[in-house]
């Protein structure tokens, strides 16, 4: 149902984004987006120490801001 939202978000892969849900706002580099999860790399360069990938349920995302 929300696949069109996920597809549009996928066009932002590689950009810095703020993903806002009702619980938290996650800021980082968008890694992937599909109808199930939107994945954001936070806390550093991908693969480096302190780097984390946060998987967020696409259905709970209210909006994404390109920062």
């Amino acid at each position: 149902m929300n696949n069109t939202y996920a597809s549009r978000v996928a066009t932002l892969i590689g950009q810095n984004v703020q993903v806002t849900t009702s619980v938290d706002t996650i800021t980082g580099t968008l890694v992937s987006s599909d109808k199930t999860f939107i994945k954001v790399n936070t806390g550093g360069v991908d693969g480096s120490e302190g780097s984390k990938t946060v998987s967020i349920l696409t259905s709970v995302v209210a909006y994404i801001r390109v920062v």
């Binding site: 929300n2 069109t4 939202y5 549009r8 259905s59 801001r65």
Partner: peptide, 30 residues
């Protein structure tokens, strides 16, 4: 979110806020 709607899909709208910041709103949580 306040902004100008620049694009609309089945389940999203793209808004341009002040200072040209792009926001993609999910209609599932609107």
């Amino acid at each position: 979110i306040k902004g100008v709607i620049t694009e609309v899909g089945n389940w999203y709208a793209v808004l341009t806020e002040d200072e040209n910041i792009t926001v993609i709103v999910n209609f599932a949580n609107t």
